[in-house]
Structure formats: structure tokens, C-alpha cells
């Protein structure tokens, strides 16, 4: 579904991603872990070209999306993205946040977009917030809305960039529950996270990144049970007390 070939990314003289090759199949739940500065967020952001790669190829559903003939705006409709800091639109109500893209990009008419938004709101238990503004919501609620906003576009893959890192500890659970539910329904997803418990439980595959490379990858059982690479072992020993 997503294929990455020889992906390199540099910021000035700083090499953030070094020759990454990776394929993500439909239905996979890939969780990326690693120390900060290892390039995992940059890797994720390269997948929908929020970060344009310095070199290499990104393929999505059979088309190379970082070629000049590809309309990236059409591709991004199929790739939902959830950010660490939510980035809800503060000037719009919750309902407007969710329906803005489907309506303005003429994917749905207004009434069906609203209907879909209400269904999704009910799913994450925030029906009563549809006329609220983002500033009136807690962090966990905002992130659930951000997920719903992405889902309203009917994406075929969801990218999560540290979706719980900016949340109070007591709100992490409600957001992870929503992501877990999505995973159970078969959504393809790539998740950058520091939540090892979540990775162990939801991932079909765990990637460990360090210094711009994917150093090790395995099923969660193998990855957490018997890590091979010394860097992985060191990292896991630090994060799992």
C-alpha cells in the first residue's frame, strides 16, 4: 500500500533519514518507536509529503506521490493524519471542523457530511460537543475530534504522529481506545508513539528507528520479548522500567 524506496531527508547539513526502504501493506498496524531525534516523526511526515523527501521515492496505492505529475492534494485525502498538538481549527465549531474538508473539497454535500460527522461524533462519545469550539474541550477530547476530522474524509490509511504525547496522563487512555477500535476495524495505520503498552497490544509490526535508520523490526511479541540489536535493547531497557 505504501512503499518507500531509498528515502533520504536532510535539513541543511543534518541527515535525518538515511536511505530508508520500507513497505506497509493494507491492514497493517505499524508502530514506530525510537529515541527522540531518531527521525521517526520525519519519516511519518514524509509519507504524506508534509516533509518533502530530499531523495528517494514514496509510492501510495500504485502511484509515486513525490513525482511532479502527482496531485498530492488528491492523495492526502486518502491519508488521514493526526498530530501531536491536534491542530483543530480554533475559529470553527467542532461540527465545522469535521465537515470543512468534505464540504469544501466537494466530496460530500452539506447534509450528508453533517450526518457522517454526527455518526463519528457518536462513536467517540462527543455528540454533545458539536457546537462547542476547540478552546472549550480538554486535550483528550480535542485529539478524539482530530481523529474524527481525519476519518470524515474516509481515508484508507491513518498516520498518527505521537497522538498522546501532549496529553495529561489521565486522558491518554480515551484517545488510545479510539485508535485501538479503529485498528480492530481493520484500518491501516502507522503510529509514532512512546506508549510501549499500546505498541505491544495493537501493532502488527514494530519498527525501531535510531539515527535516521530503521535499525530493527519485528512482531511486537518478538520485538519486546527478544530484541536483537544492542541499540534496541538499550532503548527498551530504558523505557520499560
Amino acid at each position: 500500500m505504501i512503499t518507500v524506496k531509498n528515502l533520504c531527508k536532510t535539513f541543511g547539513t543534518l541527515e535525518v533519514l538515511r536511505d530508508i526502504n520500507e513497505t506497509i501493506e493494507r491492514g497493517e498496524k505499524v508502530v514506530i518507536v525510537g529515541p527522540s531525534g531518531s527521525g521517526k516523526s520525519t519519516f511519518l511526515r514524509c509519507l504524506n509529503l508534509l516533509e518533502p523527501p530530499t531523495s528517494g521515492e514514496i509510492w501510495f496505492e500504485g502511484t509515486q506521490i513525490n513525482s511532479p505529475d502527482c496531485d498530492i492534494n488528491l492523495v492526502r485525502r486518502k491519508m488521514g493524519m493526526v498530530f501531536q498538538h491536534f491542530h483543530l481549527f480554533p475559529h470553527l465549531t467542532i461540527l465545522e471542523n469535521i465537515t470543512l474538508a468534505p464540504i469544501k473539497l466537494k466530496i460530500m454535500d452539506k447534509s450528508s457530511a453533517i450526518e457522517k460527522a454526527r455518526k463519528l461524533l457518536a462513536r467517540v462519545g462527543l455528540t454533545d460537543k458539536e457546537n462547542a469550539y476547540p478552546a472549550q474541550l480538554s486535550g483528550g477530547q480535542k485529539q478524539r475530534i482530530a481523529i474524527v476530522r481525519s476519518l470524515a474524509m474516509n481515508p484508507t490509511v491513518m498516520l498518527f504522529d505521537e497522538p498522546t504525547s501532549a496529553l495529561d496522563p489521565e486522558m491518554v487512555g480515551e484517545v488510545l481506545d479510539v485508535i485501538r477500535e479503529l485498528a480492530d476495524e481493520g484500518m491501516t495505520m502507522v503510529v509514532v508513539t512512546h506508549e510501549m503498552g499500546f505498541a505491544r497490544e495493537v501493532a502488527t509490526r514494530v519498527l525501531f528507528m535510531d539515527e535516521g535508520r530503521i535499525v530493527e523490526q519485528n512482531t511486537p511479541r518478538e520485538f519486546f520479548g527478544s530484541p536483537k540489536n544492542p541499540r534496541t535493547i538499550e532503548f527498551l531497557s530504558k523505557v520499560i522500567a
Binding site: N73, R76, M81, L88, L105, M153
Partner: peptide, 19 residues
């Protein structure tokens, strides 16, 4: 992040600025 959120939903640069 507002621009990134708009772009990630499929809005082009101009529409992101406008809406």
C-alpha cells in the same frame, strides 16, 4: 500546524489560506 492540518486534509495552499 494549522497549515499542516489543512494540507493534510487535502486542501491546496490557497484553500488552506482562505478557509
Amino acid at each position: 500546524g494549522q497549515i499542516e492540518a489543512g494540507r493534510s486534509l487535502g486542501f491546496g495552499y490557497v484553500k488552506t489560506m482562505w478557509y
